[in-house]
Simulated assay, not measured.
Amino acid sequence: MILTLFFIFSISIVSADNFNSTDIADDSNADSIHESFQKLLINSNNLSHDKKSVSKDFDFFGLFDFGHEKKYGYWVWAKDMNNVDFDKLSKNGVNVVFLNSFAFTEYGQREVLDWIHEAREHDIEVHVWMQIFNTGNWISPLKNGTPDTRYFNYKIEEARYYAGLDEVSGIQIDYIRFEGNAYRYNNSTEAINMFVKNFSDEMRKINPDLTLSATVMPETDNDEYFYGQDIKTICKYVDVIVPMMYKGNYNENSSWIENTTRWFVDNSGDAEVWCGLQTYDSDYNVTALSADELIKDKDLCFKGGADGVFYFKWGMNNDLESRKIN
């Protein structure tokens, strides 16, 4: 019987968080975000949303592991949203984009949802990219020495709004860290772990099919000391770890990318690893890197075991954006 089922089955197959604020949307106004967001919450009640569900049926085909699709994409700033050419992206192999959440306050819900729908028509997933502890200025995860749960809940409530929208495929959380001084504070790591866990728990309630990804610094064992990022714990609560392999910022060469990727693959549990690459020399020199070099670096990420590669950011490297990356 099993052999018969397998035979039938077989013949049926045809087959940016940076050191500084360079990844903050320069069209954002942090002081007005709360007011604008509250308006969005009110307006969102006027739109109906299809709720996704998880099938409880036995998945026979899930018994067979035929590999999974590699992910290729870009971070997209809010101000660049309407300049993105989905035809071009799709033809060049892009299948995911991280859209900065400020797009909702810049353009309004209806326009962003139309943009997301257009992306989906080109087989491109859209993940809403949220900046957590830096939205223009650094925000401490601690208040009076303990995790600032009031601020945590504020950002989680914002994310609940995105998670309930039609065709949003994921939430990408950036700046889930201290500025580089976590070692000065008691409970710094506990605060970051608490936020990620609480965030994940609430997103799973809204839509268990969402892909949750967390941007982290690429300093491996030093991430916890400087940034409060305990990779081995964070990976338990998200689907994807996104280390920022910004070699120019660290004055490193391409081989560093492969070795660092392998460390994250080995230390991220069941979470996938999607590498983040700079499309320019460094935060101190924004000269665009050659497409050949960036494609080579992408290949080194995969050689190190990555499941995806994302470039920061769309609109900064015309040479790369004109090349096929998949």
Rank of each mutant, 00 (worst) to 15 (best):
S268Y: 07
V309M: 04
D299E: 08
E293D: 14
C275G: 14
V286Y: 09
T261V: 11
N267T: 10
E272M: 13
A291N: 08
N267D: 04
V309F: 02
S282I: 05
N253L: 00
E258N: 14
T261D: 03
S254R: 13
D297C: 12
A306K: 07
A271E: 06
K296D: 00
D283M: 05
F264Q: 00
N285P: 07
N267G: 12
E258P: 00
D283S: 10
C301I: 06
K296T: 09
E258Q: 15
L289H: 03
C275E: 01
E293P: 13
C301Q: 04
C301Y: 05
N285K: 08
N253Q: 12
E272K: 11
W274V: 13
D299M: 09
G269H: 08
R262F: 02
K247N: 13
D299Q: 12
I257A: 01
N267Q: 07
N249P: 09
G305R: 06
G276M: 03
A271C: 04
D307H: 13
S254N: 12
S290C: 05
E252Q: 15
G305A: 11
T261G: 03
T287H: 11
Y284S: 15
Y250T: 03
S255H: 13
T260S: 14
F264L: 02
N253E: 05
E293V: 14
Y311S: 12
I295M: 08
L277N: 09
D281K: 10
N259I: 08
W256V: 04
T287A: 13
Y280A: 03
Y280F: 15
A291E: 06
L294T: 13
Q278G: 10
S255R: 15
R262N: 11
G248M: 03
G308Q: 06
C275H: 00
K303H: 08
G276Y: 12
Y311E: 00
S254W: 04
R262C: 01
F264P: 02
D297K: 13
L277S: 10
D266F: 05
T261S: 11
K303A: 14
L277W: 08
F310R: 09
W274H: 15
